[in-house]
Amino acid sequence: MIPLYSKMSPTDPSLEYTLPQTPSTPLRQKQTTSTSPLPLIIFSETKAVDLTNRFRKDADAYYVEAKRSTVATMAQIPYWVYGVLVVLGWNEAMLVLFNPLYFTMLLVGLVSAWFIIQLGLVGPLFQISRTVGNEVQRQLSNRLREHFSHPALAEPVRTRPLSDQSENDEIKREVRVKREQF
């Protein structure tokens, strides 16, 4: 926008402005013999470059400051949230602490986590987990593709022998009779 507004030249000839012909005005360039009017120069090319550089520097500074203030305000969890978590999770915490099976599993998990951290196996554990997860996803997608790629054939309708139908009719009659009795 700075190069656009560094020079003014109206497109409508009725709006043209001519500066007085004084030798001390630095805003006007030297007169040429052409018939087209010269644009009014607001600031020079070096001043435009200087303004552009200052604008970029200020914009970068404001951006960094806004980002820093956003990170600083978002990093702190309000203290009342911890209270809400304690109140809402109290029954689950008591369940884990007073149930021997859950408490034993909690201790085994904590001891395992401590050993993994102390031995520096967190990175390899994440890599193995990611590899196993990708393999499970690949095999699952292949099996689903296989299953849905072949159309399911409808099984033929099987007819019952006549003896089964007559037995079924007798059972229905007995059920009707019993319903009528109640």
Rank of each mutant, 00 (worst) to 15 (best):
D12V: 10
S6P: 04
P10I: 01
L19T: 03
Q29P: 13
T35D: 14
T18D: 05
P39C: 04
S14P: 01
T35S: 15
S14L: 12
K30W: 06
L27N: 14
T22I: 14
T25C: 13
T18H: 09
P10E: 03
P26M: 00
T33D: 05
K7M: 05
Q21E: 05
S14F: 13
S14T: 13
S24T: 09
L15P: 01
K30M: 07
T35R: 14
M8K: 06
Q21G: 00
T11I: 07
R28D: 14
S6C: 09
L19P: 04
L15N: 11
S36K: 15
P23Y: 02
T32W: 00
T18V: 05
S36M: 14
S9D: 02
T22Q: 08
T33P: 00
P26V: 02
K7L: 03
S14H: 10
R28T: 14
P23F: 03
L27A: 15
P13R: 12
Q21T: 02
Y17Q: 06
Q29H: 09
P26K: 03
P20G: 08
D12G: 02
P37T: 14
P23K: 05
S6A: 13
L19C: 07
D12L: 10
T33S: 09
P13D: 12
L19F: 08
K30I: 09
L15E: 11
Q29Y: 06
S34F: 14
P13W: 11
P20T: 07
E16M: 13
K30T: 08
P13T: 12
L38I: 04
T33I: 01
T25A: 09
T25K: 03
T25F: 04
Q21M: 01
P20S: 13
T35G: 11
R28E: 12
S9T: 00
P39H: 07
Y17G: 02
P37D: 05
P23R: 08
T11P: 06
T25V: 04
L38Q: 15
L38Y: 01
M8C: 11
L38A: 13
P26I: 02
Y17W: 09
Q21R: 04
S34I: 08
S24R: 08
L27F: 15
Y17L: 12
S24E: 10
T18N: 04
L40I: 06
T35Q: 11
T32G: 09
S14D: 10
Q31S: 01
E16W: 13
K30S: 07
S9W: 01
K7G: 00
P37S: 12
T22F: 06
L40G: 01
Y17C: 08
T35V: 14
D12E: 13
T32V: 03
P13C: 12
Q31N: 02
M8G: 07
Q31V: 00
L15R: 10
E16S: 12
K7E: 10
P10S: 10
T22E: 06
E16A: 15
S24G: 07
M8W: 12
P20V: 09
S6K: 15
R28F: 14
P10T: 02
P26R: 05
